[in-house]
Design a protein around this nucleic acid. Structure first.
Lengths: 228, 228
DNA sequence: CTGTATCCGTGTTGATACTG
DNA sequence: CAGTATCAACACGGATACAG
C-alpha cells in the first residue's frame, strides 16, 4: 500500500518508462508543443506568444511556461537594460525537439480533414518550409538568402549545401525579398497558386532574384492527402 | 460577435492551419499517441491495448479509439471466423505517424527527469530499438534475424542493409533468441548492464548466435542526458 | 471474456475580469 | 505589458453495471 501523497500536486503522468510516454509527460499537455514551436527561432516575450497562439488564454499560457521551465525545456531570462523585458527561450535540449514538431507537421499535412482557411503564424510558415524542403527536387544546387517579410515579422532563410536554415530578423545581403501573409507565401512556395496570379491579386511582392525564388519554390512539394 | 454554436459538439481544436497544430488536433489528446504506438506493429484488440497502457480507463480508451477512427488514423476490423474478434489497426496514413513517435522517444530519452523504474511495454521496447538503431556504429555490416520473447509476446527483428524492421510473432529461421523482460533486454542492448551480469542474475537468456547479438547491441547508443 | 455505457469526484481548460 | 483570480464547462480516471 502506498502512502498518501501529502501534497495535492497530483500531476497526471503516464506511468510508463517508454521514452515516447515520458516525452508526452513533458510536452503532451495542450499548447505545450505550440509554445515550443513559437520559440524555435529564438526568445520571445509573453505577448508575442499569446499573439501567435490563437485562442490560448493568459492563465494557461502561464501554466505551460511554468511547467516547461520546470522540466528544463525552456528558461525565462530578463534582457539587460535598456530593454529590461522578460523573454522565454528554449534550452539546448528544448531546441532539439524540432524533429518532433517537423514530423508532426509533415504528418498533419497529409490529413484529409485539414482546414487551410485558418490563420497561420509566421513561425509556422517558416517551420513548414523547413519540414518540406527537399533539395533533391531542384536541378541546380541552390545557394541563396531569402528575406521573408510577413505582416510584422521579418525572417531570413538561408539555403546552403542542401540545408535550409532560418533566423528571425533581416540579414544584410539578401538575394530576394518576399512580402505577403504567411499563408499566401506558402501557397506560392508549395505551388498551390502561381507567383503571377498571387502578384496580380496583390497578395505577394517579390523583389530581387525572382528566378531564384522560383527555383527555391521548386524544391518544395506538398505531400498528397491520405485517402479520406 | 460570433453566433453561438448550435451543436454542442464543442470539440476543442487549435484554430491554426499549421500542420503541427492540426496533427495535434488529431492525436494530441491524452493517450492517443500511445494507442497508436501499440498498434504500430499490426492490429490488436481492446484488451491488449488496455493491458499495455497502464492506467488508461476503459471509457477513455473507447473514446480515443472512436476519435482516431473518425479521423482516419485507424480502423476497426472484425477478424473472420473462427476468430471473430474485433481488432483495431492503423490505416496506411496512421502507420506513417511512426516518425512522430520515434522522434518523441529519442527526445524523451534525453530527459534528466525520466524514471527508468517504471514498466515498459513490449512494443515500446521494440520501437525504442527502432528509434536508436545506428548501423554506422558497427564495424561489420549486420545482417541477422533476432527473436525477442518478452513475457507473453514474441517479436521478430530483422536487420538488413542497415535497416531494422520488426514484426509481431515468431519467424521460422532466427539467428538468435532473446528471452527476458522488455526492460532487462533493453538494459543489455543499450549497454547499461553487461550480458554476462544479466544472465547471471537470471534476467536474460540468449540462445543461438551470442556474438551476433553482442554485435547487434553495439549498434545502439543511449544519448546523453540533457544537463539538468 | 470483450467491449460499451453511465455515474461521479477531481483536475484541467478557457473566457473574462482584474492587478502590479 | 505580464501576468493573477475567479468561475463555469469540460475531460479524465475509477468504479460499476450492462450487452453479446
Amino acid at each position: 500500500m502506498k502512502l498518501e501523497k501529502i501534497t495535492t500536486k497530483t500531476k497526471r503522468r503516464y506511468e510508463d518508462s517508454c521514452g515516447t510516454a515520458h516525452a508526452l509527460d513533458l510536452v503532451g499537455e495542450r499548447w505545450a508543443l505550440l509554445v515550443m514551436r513559437e520559440l524555435m527561432l529564438g526568445p520571445r516575450r509573453f505577448s508575442d506568444l499569446r499573439a501567435n497562439l490563437p485562442g490560448v488564454s493568459a492563465n494557461v499560457l502561464t501554466q505551460r511556461l511554468e511547467s516547461l521551465e520546470g522540466s528544463g525545456v525552456l528558461r525565462r531570462r530578463k534582457l539587460p537594460p535598456p530593454a529590461s523585458v522578460q523573454v522565454y527561450e528554449l534550452t539546448e535540449w528544448g531546441l532539439e525537439a524540432e524533429p518532433i514538431i517537423l514530423s508532426l507537421g509533415r504528418w498533419g499535412a497529409r490529413s484529409p480533414l485539414q482546414d487551410d482557411s485558418l490563420p497561420i503564424s509566421a513561425m509556422s510558415a517558416i517551420l513548414s518550409m523547413r519540414a518540406m524542403f527537399d533539395p533533391a527536387r531542384t536541378e541546380e544546387k541552390l545557394d541563396m538568402t531569402l528575406a521573408f517579410h510577413f505582416d510584422q515579422d521579418a525572417y531570413t532563410v538561408n539555403v546552403r549545401e542542401g540545408r535550409l536554415t532560418a533566423e528571425r530578423g533581416e540579414a544584410d545581403e539578401v538575394d530576394v525579398e518576399i512580402r505577403g501573409s504567411p499563408s499566401d507565401v506558402l501557397g506560392v512556395v508549395y505551388g498551390l497558386s502561381s507567383l503571377e496570379e498571387a502578384e496580380r491579386a496583390g497578395m505577394l511582392t517579390v523583389t530581387g532574384d525572382r528566378a531564384g525564388f522560383l527555383r527555391f519554390a521548386s524544391a518544395f512539394e506538398l505531400p498528397p492527402k491520405a485517402c479520406a
